[in-house]
Simulated scan of single mutants.
Amino acid sequence: MSSRRTFLTAALCAAAAGSGLAGAAPAAAWPGPYVTVAADGSGDFTAVQAAVDAVPAGNTGPFTIKVKPGVYRGQVIIPADKPHIVLRGQGADPTQVVIVDDRANGTPKPGGGTWGTSGSASVTISGDDFSARNLTFANDFDEAAHPEITSRQAVAVLTRADRIVFDNVRFLGNQDTLYLNSPDAATISRVYLRKCYVEGDVDFIFGRATAVFDRCEIRSLSRGSTTNNGYVTAASTSIANPYGFLITGSKLTSDAPAGTVFLGRPWHPSNDPDAIAQTVIRDSTIGAHIGPAPWTDFGTWPWRDARYAEYHNRGPGATVTADRPQLTDDEAAGATIDAYLTGWHPQR
């Protein structure tokens, strides 16, 4: 966390802080209307949330929010009645635009109580057909600086909508970095992540959404343990949904000691017996941080009751053992990007 905080602090010093400019009218080309956010005041707004607020409710086509290089601190909430938002970083690479906040589950709220896991999210996306490209979402809650806070789930992005695309996006956090969810257990919400980078330690990719990680890097941070440095996934897929998380053509990396990170454990929110994790990792490179028994129980919920499988993985952490269920060739033919996205075909 310290290296990320140093980067963010330096970027903040280089970018002017400010609030949204009032009354900016969206431009009419791009295609579609757009506004520009710039921390230095050279755009229509200086805050991302102010630009989101400018999008008309019930919007029926793409509305682009261009974000110039800088660090933009504060929560961003994209409501369900504002679909089709495109958030596009204008830097040379995704490191140059950072949207960040620093709340955790146990962080006190101004009016009393704490934020909770969902409330900790730096960015919450409830509008369908959202896309983000070429930027970074982060939660830089500093665990070491707040030993009094023991509920340390600190979400960078929470999704609650369908047909979401993240393209060349970084997600930075520690525990519970990326929360891929849906409006309710009966609703299937699909997320496609292309060439993204996700980092964290405990359950840092979790939730009940259907999500495809295509050619991504998924990096487990070391917590300094010699035995357990966390869990990559904690899916809570509804039993009625055959498709949870698909990680394909990707890299699972870490500098944690060999065999100290688990691929996943089955999350049953509120002890829901119908939340049966579904995760497939295929055609990917797995580092030595993953051990020979990479799936583990979550409290009293056994991993063997979940729907976990691998296929044609490689690398020092991809050893095939009795504790690593493998897809057959026929099963793998049905565990594809198109199958998971069920009729939706985002540009790949």
Rank of each mutant, 00 (worst) to 15 (best):
A234Q: 13
A235L: 06
T237R: 03
A240V: 10
A240T: 14
A240F: 06
A240M: 06
F245L: 10
T248Q: 02
K251I: 10
L252A: 00
P257F: 14
A258T: 11
G259F: 10
T260H: 10
L263K: 09
D274L: 12
D274G: 13
A275Q: 04
A275R: 09
I276D: 13
T279R: 14
T279L: 15
I281C: 02
S284K: 01
I286C: 10
I290L: 11
T296V: 14
T296G: 06
F298P: 00
G299N: 11
T300L: 11
T300K: 12
P302E: 01
Y308T: 01
N313H: 03
G315N: 05
P316Q: 07
T319L: 12
T319P: 05
V320L: 10
V320R: 10
D323G: 05
D323N: 12
R324D: 00
P325R: 05
Q326C: 01
L327C: 02
L327W: 09
D329L: 03
D330G: 05
E331Y: 09
E331S: 01
A332Y: 02
A332S: 05
A333T: 07
A333R: 14
G334K: 13
G334S: 09
T336L: 01
I337P: 02
I337V: 15
A339N: 12
A339S: 15
T342G: 09
